[in-house]
Amino acid sequence: MKIYKFIHDTFLIFSRTLLITLRNPLRIIIFGLFQPLCFLFLFAPMLDSLVRVPGFPPGGSLNVFTPGLLIMMAIYSSAFVGFGLIGDMRNGVVSRMRVTPVSRLALLLGRSLTDMFILLMQSVILITIATLFGLKLNISGVILSLILVVLVGLMVSSFSYTIAMLTKNEYTLAPTINLFLIPLQLNSGITLPLSLAPAWINKIALFNPLAYAVSGVRELFNGNFLNSTVIIGFAVVTAMACLSVYFASRTFKNLNA
């Protein structure tokens, strides 16, 4: 009964936020996809000449780069969702909902679900376009990748919500998020694979959940399902996403006003 109510409430918040977000479909498509498409058009072709460099992963330049691009999109379309929460805190929507008997976790997860849903749509569009450029598709691999991508989105968006609730201020939120994102992204093998990196960079990457996600998605795109990179990728990202959601919901519960 309690779990049914929780799912019901989460879905209510999800459909409400989705409805409002989709009122501006162009904004999501253009703003969300613009940056990854730029990388696809203007950066990916430069990797063609690197394919023969020793240490470059197998599968062709697009099959190496698109997975990284998906994770990059997961990061950037989720990293600043906290702005929306700050807006809703400021105009009283959050307080109004916190006075209702709806589960605190549902109020937060409903939002995250919307973020994940939009990320999923963006990912499908991006993969379709990359296929036109010569990406070799492995359908089951792509479907499993999407799950991993969405989990990265959940991890990053919950993190963004936590920082938003702690700072309560857009001017502090953006630099704080960037403080974490820039090093994590550079060290994740998104733009250039970590197999090209010196050993000490790879050692740092052992502590970077995004690096595990990128490697996992790359293996999946090449049709390797049951290898340790994929399994570890899922395990690390799932664990980090759960942790991130836990911290976000704890912060939300103790939110002042």
């Binding site: 929507v93 307080s95 109004r96 209702t100 008997p101 709806v102």
Partner: peptide, 24 residues
Amino acid sequence: SQIGGLENEATAIENLVLQARLYG
């Protein structure tokens, strides 16, 4: 509250229906 708490990008009807459903 002093600032209310309406969702600006929705209509009054949409705000009200969601609120009612949040109360079960």
